[in-house]
Design a protein around this nucleic acid. Structure first.
Lengths: 337, 337
DNA sequence: TCGTACCAATGAAACGATTCAAATATTCGC
DNA sequence: GCGAATATTTGAATCGTTTCATTGGTACGA
């Protein structure tokens, strides 16, 4: 096989002009039935495939959208990605996916790559602070939507989830089911998600007379970190135990659950109610199915594409920051006490 | 902002010819220091970014490689993707990632898209059987490497993992630590991975006089499926219990572990040893850290890119099927009995 | 001073698709 | 059968790079 056939080859083979072949591809109605058939036959016989580079060069822009996430392995982003792909598909665009792995260097590489590809726009869950690189993009007029990050509306559009509201939701649920001595597990508080969720929980507790909230700092957000907090709790006397625990994510909650259930001294939810955050797949299949806060990831992905499309199509860029509210998922771990 | 600057704009701004600008970009040595500086300054001032479409049009091929996986959310593929990206980066290529989600239609869309993008080649973990679409690719001379799928070497190169060897490894380990009444949990056996792993386990058991292997069919490969198999085991008397259990993946094993540890009648590993497959993140943070079989995902991704590069660069395509052997990871769940 | 190397810089041609004004063909009413 | 209106087809120009044959300069030895 030498090289792939071009539109010119097709034109020769079908004895028509190149413009006609192009019309068959793009405006079939402008072409008579007879020639259309002839051209399609030629396309088939030569195995012609459109060269997107040429098309794009002429058009001045691609039909792709760049999406850079912090970690494709994270179920949160996986879900966002899938929703974005589907939404983009509806607009006839494809998504170029980049995984920065929390690395600013990789992020920068993808930004450069996508710019060279002349993507229509960029969805990005930025590493750390919004870099000057993003500001540059903005100045160059590349429409950009921040994902999972609240943006200054004067600069970018964004889609994010209200972690404060999620924290409130979780604590409110514990209070609603009769718990009064609550504990929050999470850390370090330098993670914005952690501090926001804590803040929301504190708000809920303040509303309820007689309710208290103890903060238990964890070293990271892993199962093991949760387990060591749990072990610490087990060593306390039964009376000093909180009756409702809110963990800043599901991994922590699963760790706490392991500690508490292993010792068989405490029952979940009878002695202690437990709620996590993120609603990962494992939550439902935990020993005691875990209540959690679910983030509207599909809506995030879909809306991000919509905001981007808006910016691409409108002349004067008006930015919007869309904030979603997460959703409470009740399972056995917070059953009535 | 009008439109982005072209190489011609840069040339004007720096008062040089377009060819010179191109040389600065591609063959800096051919250009004198003085002009190079002038051009770079112009590039900076105009915010020039190469248009990859034009470059690619001229070159006849892109600097990207297509990668289509069954599910980006699956840690196995996530790891393969990351390794492939890194390996491609070393060759100066980028990876276009597509997630077929086990859907033949999405797969087909990505194949078409990538062909229009004139990717250098394609890495694909195909949905179901190798479709005629892949045969078409082959005929068109698009280098293709199958991932996680053993290929007919006369048609494709491939990278895969020897599941039979993995099954053997797991069973052998149980035997080596003194267990004799083994059980295999997995299903349905129509999944190739399941039947291969079982086969390997049977091979190991046959080698050991007096050892037996009982097959416990599960309904799927989830935690819940594992738990129901576990519950069934718990109801058996102590004497009828196997003393070593090999689960076809870690999720099943975690489910079995939940059942066995909850009832506190059986101890892991004293009464029953347990080993899974895949070595997912959760394995290490299970109540009893889970022994498992780790697949060399990084090697898979890296090698896939290498095989592809080989095919791209060589004239006459010689295909190779590289099969990796997985690795045993020993943790507490199979400690000495 | 001249000729020979060598080094830099030039700019037209090419890649493959789309666009669009112009040319040509067809249809329709009468 | 004719002219007007409409439908179809044509092909040159264009997008932004890279390539490469050619030109213009400079240095050096004789």
């Amino acid at each position: 096989m030498n090289r792939t056939a071009s539109i010119k080859d097709v034109a020769n083979h079908a004895s028509v002009a190149v413009g006609t072949v192009s019309n068959v591809l793009n405006y079939p109605d402008r072409v008579s039935q007879r020639t259309k058939e002839r051209v399609l036959k030629a396309i088939d016989e030569l195995g012609f495939v459109r060269n997107d580079a040429a098309r794009q060069l002429r058009a001045g822009h691609s039909r792709t959208v760049g999406l850079i996430v912090l970690d494709v392995g994270n179920p949160f982003f996986t879900s966002v990605v899938r929703a974005a792909e589907d939404a983009a598909g509806l607009h006839g665009s494809a998504v170029l996916l980049g995984d920065s792995g929390h690395d600013a260097g990789r992020e920068a590489n993808y930004i450069d790559l996508f710019q060279e590809q002349r993507v229509q726009g960029l969805l990005i869950s930025p590493v750390g602070d919004v870099t000057e690189r993003l500001d540059l993009l903005r100045e160059r007029g590349v429409p950009t939507v921040l994902v999972d990050r609240l943006a200054d509306e004067s600069k970018f559009s964004s889609v994010s989830v209200d972690d404060d509201a999620g924290g409130y939701l979780a604590a409110r649920h514990l209070l609603d089911t009769g718990r009064r001595r609550l504990a929050f597990v999470g850390g370090p508080t330098s993670i914005r998600q952690v501090s926001d969720r804590l803040q929301g929980a504190q708000r809920a507790v303040k509303e309820e007379a007689g309710a208290t909230l103890e903060v238990l700092a964890s070293e990271g957000m892993t199962v093991l970190a949760g387990r060591s907090v749990g072990n610490m709790l087990v060593e306390r006397g039964r009376d000093e135990l909180p009756d409702g625990i809110f963990c800043a994510n599901d991994l922590l909650a699963l760790g706490v659950m392991q500690s508490l259930t292993m010792t068989h001294t405490f029952r979940i939810p009878e002695d202690v109610a437990l709620i996590g955050y993120d609603d990962i797949d494992f939550a439902v299949s935990a020993v005691v199915p875990l209540s959690s806060i679910r983030q509207p990831t599909e809506a995030l992905g879909r809306t991000a594409i919509e905001l981007l499309t808006e910016e691409v199509e409108s002349q004067n860029p008006v930015h919007r920051a869309v904030v979603f509210t997460p959703e409470l998922v009740v399972r056995q771990s917070t059953g009535k006490a």
